[in-house]
């Protein structure tokens, strides 16, 4: 009998992987970041390029969804006008928790070169932002890097924490 003893816990024999609920949940979340298609201006072209075959966002599990109900991530790609501000807030509110926001490009960060009456001077005046991505327009690699940083941040968070109130509301 001793001859055939299997030391399940030592030899990797047991077909079970031990981890914490936090880790597995956040691992899942971070690798299925479905993004809302939120192209507002020229940055959207780079966002689309990131989704297309050359850069291939699907590798990260990031698939663009056309409905806020199915999205975890909002990539604000482009210039947010004051007319549109109420709709971005509405769409953000419609996204299910947990949700994240990447502000892509100078326009979304600060209003960029549109220092005028009609442009919101940074989307963080309207919705809370997790990652600010500089550039005009940021290249697809930059956007992918931002998504990787966000994934890392998500993995670091606890899955069941009470949702921290972000800066607004």
């Amino acid at each position: 009998m001793a001859q055939h003893q299997v030391r399940y816990l030592q030899d990797g024999g047991l077909p079970v992987l031990l981890t914490t609920a936090d880790k597995i949940l956040q691992w899942g979340r971070s690798n299925s970041l479905w993004a809302l298609t939120y192209g507002l201006a020229c940055c959207a072209i780079e966002m689309m390029a990131s989704g297309a075959s050359r850069y291939d966002f699907d590798r990260f599990g990031t698939i663009f969804r056309a409905s806020p109900r199915q999205a975890d991530l909002m990539i604000v790609a482009g210039t947010l006008t004051k007319k549109h501000a109420e709709f971005i807030r509405r769409l953000y509110d419609q996204m299910a928790e947990p949700k994240w926001v990447i502000s892509m490009g100078s326009c979304a960060n600060t209003g960029g070169m549109f220092n005028t009456y009609a442009t919101v001077q940074g989307v963080d005046r309207v919705i809370p932002v997790d990652i600010y991505l500089p550039g005009c327009a940021p290249r697809p690699e930059t956007l992918q890097y931002a998504v990787m940083m966000l994934q890392k941040q998500i993995r670091r968070e606890s899955a069941f924490q009470k949702l921290k109130p972000k800066r607004l509301v």
Binding site: A85, E86, V120, V126
Partner: peptide, 19 residues
């Protein structure tokens, strides 16, 4: 005579409207 950066109404437009 309209300021390029907007008058007070324009500068607070999105904040007033949403929040």
């Amino acid at each position: 005579d309209y300021p390029l950066h907007g008058d007070e109404f324009a500068q607070w437009y999105e904040v007033d409207k949403i929040f």
